[in-house]
Amino acid sequence: MVSCPECEAQVMVPSPVHTHDILECDECRMELEVLSVSPMVLGLAPEVEEDWGE
């Protein structure tokens, strides 16, 4: 478990987890990006940009 950088709720981290994986906080529903695995650091995932897509 690690704290959500937005609301400080505890976020369950799946195993295995990799750098840049996207997680979601169950409390505030923010998308979070795994910035580092060891130590575990979460940041807010980038917002969707206009030219994102398939």
């Binding site: 840049h20 994986d21 996207i22 980038p46």
Partner: peptide, 14 residues
């Protein structure tokens, strides 16, 4: 090259 690792990228890495 990927700035966002979605399920698809994870499957490709695997």
């Amino acid at each position: 090259v990927a700035s966002r690792v979605r399920g698809e990228e994870r499957r490709i890495f695997e």
